[in-house]
Amino acid sequence: MALLDKINNPFFQEVGDLARFTGRFFREVVKPKQEWEEFINQCYWIGYKTFSLVGITAFIMGLVLTIQTRPTLLEFGAESFIPSMVSLALVREIAPVITALICAGKIGSGIGAELGSMRVTEQIDAMEVSGTNPFKYLVVTRVLASTVMVPILSSLAIAISIYGGYLGVNLKGDVNWSLYWYQAYDALIYGDFIPSMVKTIFFGFAIGIVGTYKGYNSQKGTEGVGRSATTAVIVASLLVFILDLVAVQIADVLGLT
């Protein structure tokens, strides 16, 4: 009886429903025909419309990181290591994770609210009646767009944040432009970039699948729409941290750290 109660636990039911939803996504994504026009439209909204927020955050992130670390390194006479240290921290961990969290907040909540509104106003039901496949049009396109655009946004965030680090170094010093970039990139190897880019693909997929799942299965009217948007952000953010932990462990086992 205790085992039955655990199986009927809402948490495990939610995990099972999400797993079935993900399985349906993989089945639908290989079936013709693909909604390329909607996919490109979602790439525009997910990527281009989020870039300004990501860019500003990345710039401030690089600037603040440099300013905060400079006094400590200055005490040990290691000020010359600031460019390499900042670039390693940003490329390996900070920029990809912060970018994913921003996308979880903006994209996850937006998708959850949009699909939730369509569900409670019966627009999705109307699409099913008219012969359109709402899952492929609404879910597959958004998940694919999120999976593609989050790594691109992360790459741009890395470049912008390193530039912010350059300005941070020169606030209380005078470092040549070419010298800064040489030191920043000389400390990096492909083993730093590859795990960073690979995990952002999974970040983007997790954000997209959670946002669409919560919105597509929204219930209880307008209250359910707000709940879908909120829980999409919470679950997606949590998954970002879990996936990051797994990625770090895998990279460590493969000797990429």
Rank of each mutant, 00 (worst) to 15 (best):
L4N: 11
N9M: 04
E14L: 10
E14K: 02
D17W: 07
T22H: 02
F25D: 12
R27E: 09
E28L: 03
E28M: 12
V30Y: 06
F39M: 13
N41P: 00
C43A: 10
T50L: 06
S52A: 13
I56N: 08
I56V: 13
I56E: 03
A58T: 01
F59V: 11
V91L: 13
I94L: 15
V97H: 07
T99H: 09
A100Q: 09
G105H: 04
I107L: 07
I111D: 00
G112V: 03
G112H: 01
A113I: 00
G116F: 03
R119C: 06
E122W: 02
E122M: 08
T132G: 01
N133H: 06
P134W: 00
F135S: 14
L138M: 15
T147K: 05
P151H: 07
I152Y: 03
S154C: 14
A157Y: 02
A159H: 05
I162P: 09
Y163K: 02
L167F: 14
G168Q: 12
V169E: 15
K172C: 00
G173C: 11
G173R: 06
D174R: 14
D174C: 05
S178Y: 06
Y180R: 08
W181T: 05
W181Y: 14
Y185M: 15
S196C: 07
S196E: 03
M197H: 08
I201K: 01
F205E: 05
I207C: 14
I207N: 02
I209W: 01
T212K: 10
N217Q: 07
Q219F: 01
G221E: 03
G221M: 02
E223V: 06
G224D: 10
S237N: 15
V240L: 12
V248G: 04
D252F: 11
V253H: 10
T257V: 10
